[in-house]
Design a binder for these strands. Structure first.
Lengths: 199, 199, 199, 199
DNA sequence: CATTAATCGAGACGGTACGTCATGTCTTCCG
DNA sequence: CGGAAGACATGACGTACCGTCTCGATTAATG
């Protein structure tokens, strides 16, 4: 799946979907091969047989390529509904980690997300785009936590927002430190998330 | 504290401390003015009235300048010993947040740490340096958690390591999302950290 | 006479004269505004509200636009017949300089000719086109010189060809060096052309 | 004399003469190979193994490369002093044509001069540089004409300036039209220049 | 005290990538 | 069905930094 030598034809005054796909494919390959820091628009253009101007037209920066790549790997996750917060979380966190790791054969999104979080620290625009993306993606966590609250499971001393943060914060921390657990560790991880620290 | 026009004299065969200070000052100023992404060794050299080669001799990369800057802002934090995990944490987390925010008049280290965490996602060397830095810095948390464990305060279902992670993870999450709490919020934050999610 | 906002309708399978005129007008305006070196087919197309492809279809290069412009400014000059070489030349050279300067209200062709001569030095095709153009245009000089020869006025040591060259060479030299004389100076100029250098 | 593979060592903070020579050599080669219109700073840099920035530092434009090339081919011409205007001119014009044609084994400067004159029509800066160059170069013609005037040879109806123009104008005309005479034709050419057109 | 060696500032160098621009070709769709 | 509109691949533009180098000055320790 290297340099695609097939020559894509221009389709004129409309955006070419083949070119878009070729650019994203080239980006993904190059990140895998040389890393994001060494990624170059010039190299993407050459690999994708696309003009640099075309890339700049649709993606204002390297980070936007990253975002496109990340968004493209989106997959719908089923709404968990097991009747308990623990069960819902095991299902949801397990599915999320599976996608991060790429268990289902799709591309692992963990490296992309790490890079996006990193870029967001340097570029407010990326930060905003990432928050936006996240908002839509966390819809499920909202539901899970609110359902638990309605069932009376949730510690009333915690706001739903803080509860969500506790869930995501630990996942981010493990992600950013390259310590993501394997598939079998999900229940233990969820139990740790749910547990209070004091006896 | 702008461009230091005073001409530092070379001291010959020894590394010049004035130059080192001038470089770090220039770096800090430029990050504040143009941001880290737009930071340039060339600009640092010019601002610090230093030769580019001199900078490259002592700091192999932009990230090392960042690390130097971060390390230079190190301050010893008193070992908390209040007799309870909650008390120790309030004291320690409060001190840490104060330093991050720069409450004591020193430079805020939060922006530096954010950038370092970001760099670490792209550069394994920085990751390692950051872990190393962190290990020494988290000595206190180790002690706090172990003391709590010895006092029988700590939930035995949690390993000390996981307990530490829960503490730091939430702080990082808030840091990376620009949601650091103010000084008055430390106790509530610690209570949230300590609290379990289930009723 | 700026950007013509009137939208010319396509007339189907015939070349549109309105488009041709709009293109040449736009070219002339742009050369005046930004200079020939900075002239761009893209800008001409936009200004003329023409498609780039249309321009490329009829004018293979910038130089051809120049040639079109120059040819379009052609005006018939009366055949001088005063009975003497000096009189004929004063009339003819005066008329030529007037057209170059644009005295009669028409566009000055001097700048166009300068650019064409310049282009001819870099592009053999333009050189050929320019020679062709010139051949037709110099018909009058031929006649003037040959008539003088028949009258016995012409120095027999000079071939008619060399005589023509002496006339045109000085005019070109003045043109290329931005030293074209004013209307009143024509007789003196012609006398200088006719005069021998030795006593 | 193709791509010079010998690696020139950087000499640091002083302008490198080897680089200058390599750039001019590469320019000359490329003009010969692809023509001036297709000449590219990028190609010169690659051929000369120089950085583009280095070229732009010393030569602001293609035209300046041309000027450097032309100036580098400068050779002192002996001051003719034969005692007559005709003799002096035959000697001087002969030497000039020889240099233009490259008779003495040096590079022919005719193509360079044609291009410079062309560039001068589009770029006032080049025009000025060329005039400046010419002023120094025409010192000899000044002397020749003034000596002739002092000897009483020069037609008093002609100013020295116009006399010079008549000489150079014909040479330029022949140059720009690719009609430069061969070595044997110099005396005849000079006689034509000197001759009056009227009987 | 003179010599030697390390280090400094300055900045030119060969490179690489940047982001922009124009080229000439192409497709779409309007009139 | 010609032409406007404009997206496309291409490739040069001129700029900015990179990291390396050479230079000459300055200074500290060595002999």
């Amino acid at each position: 799946m290297n340099t695609p030598e097939i020559s894509r034809a221009s389709i004129g005054a409309r955006r070419s979907p083949e070119t878009e796909a070729a650019v994203l494919t080239a980006t993904a390959e190059l990140i895998r091969e040389v890393g994001y820091a060494a990624l170059t628009i010039e190299a993407v253009a050459k690999r994708a047989r696309a003009g640099k101007a075309t890339i700049y037209r649709w993606w204002p920066s390297k980070a936007h390529l990253l975002l496109s790549l990340y968004s493209a790997s989106k997959q719908e996750v089923a709404r968990p509904n097991t009747g308990s917060l623990r069960g819902d979380l095991i299902e949801y966190v397990g599915a999320m980690l599976a996608r991060w790791r790429g268990d289902d054969g799709a591309t692992a999104t963990a490296p992309l997300l790490r890079l996006l979080i990193a870029e967001a620290q340097m570029d407010a625009g990326v930060q905003a785009a990432l928050v936006d993306e996240r908002t839509r993606r966390w819809h499920h966590i909202d539901r899970i936590v609110l359902q638990a609250r309605q069932r009376g499971e949730l510690n009333p001393a915690l706001t739903p927002r803080r509860a969500e943060q506790k869930i995501i914060a630990l996942l981010w921390y493990l992600l950013l430190n390259d310590q993501l657990p394997g598939p079998a560790d999900t229940p233990a991880l969820v139990d740790d998330i749910l547990a209070g620290m004091l006896v």
